[in-house]
């Protein structure tokens, strides 16, 4: 049975991996200028003369596509870890207020026009997200029941969102327009510096998330059973929350709150694999997250060219629709 599931995850994971490579190559080709495979090969090997081709591929499309894959992987894993930690299918990074914390900082900078260098803004947003997330995790450490953390996270997020609404109310139309780009969640105009912002967090937290499968499987048994097996449930949950916060905060700081990837990918994984075993599910969730965000961003970049729409709009529309479908099917079954 276990072997069968492993084979199934390989059957699902391999085509997903190949699909990501295919979409990645496509994302390097499509846009203005549009490149055929031969030209793309020449640009990648620095054999093509035109500077605009080199900049388009190396400085615009490639960092943006890599960013999409990294952000997708991180958000998806954050969602999976949270849902399994709290055994709650609706748990998302919003639960730990990281998203609201980063959004609050960016709203403050944008509306009040603080003289903060562009390059510094993601770090300030990251700080805001981590402080909010740290506050929720720190406050909940003594009463780490499923309900209390959800209530606490919701309350802190609601408080921060109220502050954001106050800031929006004080803003003018141009500032609100700019804030819209951020709050919608966008990968537009992101470059290598944003990739390097994400990279250390990716290197640290993605392996930690993938390595947390055993803990998540133990927590799935229920708190009492987990304690019975000698697990320190509270410490385990704090660590898993920190992992989720680390995965989410840097993405939200650099791309804005891209919705529904973290909510929908763990559900899709369970449906594809038909197992709740996180050891098999986590890698597939990661691949699905990367695939969804990369594909979504490619669509939003090319469909209405030269206009670009924030990818967060598409993930929200598709993710929301998929989630409603899943809920409907579940209600029909029960």
């Amino acid at each position: 049975m276990v072997n069968k599931r492993i084979y199934k995850s390989i059957y699902v994971g391999t085509p997903l991996f190949l699909l990501i490579i295919y979409i990645f190559i496509l994302s390097l080709q499509l846009g203005e200028p549009r490149l055929d495979l031969v030209t793309l090969g020449q640009v990648l090997t620095n054999q093509f003369e035109l500077e605009i081709h080199r900049i388009s591929v190396w400085e615009i499309r490639m960092p943006r596509s890599i960013m999409a894959i990294m952000a997708g992987v991180m958000l998806a894993l954050a969602g999976h870890v949270l849902q399994e930690t709290f055994q709650n299918d609706l748990a998302t990074p919003e639960l730990i207020s990281v998203t609201a914390g980063s959004s609050f900082v960016m709203a403050f900078i944008t509306v009040f026009g603080l003289p903060v260098l562009f390059i510094v803004q993601p770090f300030l947003a990251l700080t805001g997200g981590l402080i909010a997330g740290g506050f929720v995790i720190g406050s909940a450490k003594n009463s780490f029941k499923r309900g209390s953390i959800i209530l606490l996270g919701t309350a802190v997020s609601a408080f921060l969102n109220a502050l954001i609404i106050i800031i929006i109310a004080l803003g003018k139309e141009n500032q609100i327009g700019l804030l819209f780009f951020y709050l919608a969640g966008s990968l537009s105009a992101r470059n290598w510096s944003h990739v390097f912002n994400l990279l250390p967090w990716f290197i640290i937290f993605v392996p930690l998330a993938l390595g947390s499968a055993r803990s998540l499987n133990v927590l799935r048994l229920g708190d009492e059973a987990a304690v019975g097996r000698g697990a320190s449930v509270i410490k385990m949950k704090i660590l898993l929350l920190v992992i989720s916060a680390g995965l989410t905060a840097v993405v939200v700081a650099n791309c804005g709150p891209i919705g529904f990837i973290s909510l929908i990918t763990p559900h899709l994984t369970k449906r594809l694999l038909r197992t709740t075993n996180s050891a098999l599910g986590l890698p597939i969730t990661a691949l699905l997250g990367g695939f969804l965000l990369l594909t979504g961003d490619l669509l939003m970049r090319t469909l209405l060219y030269p206009i670009e729409l924030p990818v967060g709009l598409l993930t929200t529309i598709i993710g929301g629709s998929l989630f409603l479908t899943l809920l409907y099917r579940r209600s029909v079954r029960t």
Binding site: I60, R301, Y305, P306, I307, E308
Partner: peptide
């Protein structure tokens, strides 16, 4: 210019491609 007639400033819901600006 954009096909949807968005003039900027009044909406802010659209962002022009950096590739287009570069072009």
């Amino acid at each position: 210019k954009t096909d949807n007639g968005d003039g900027g400033h009044s909406s802010g819901s659209a962002q022009l491609s950096l590739e287009e600006i570069l072009k």
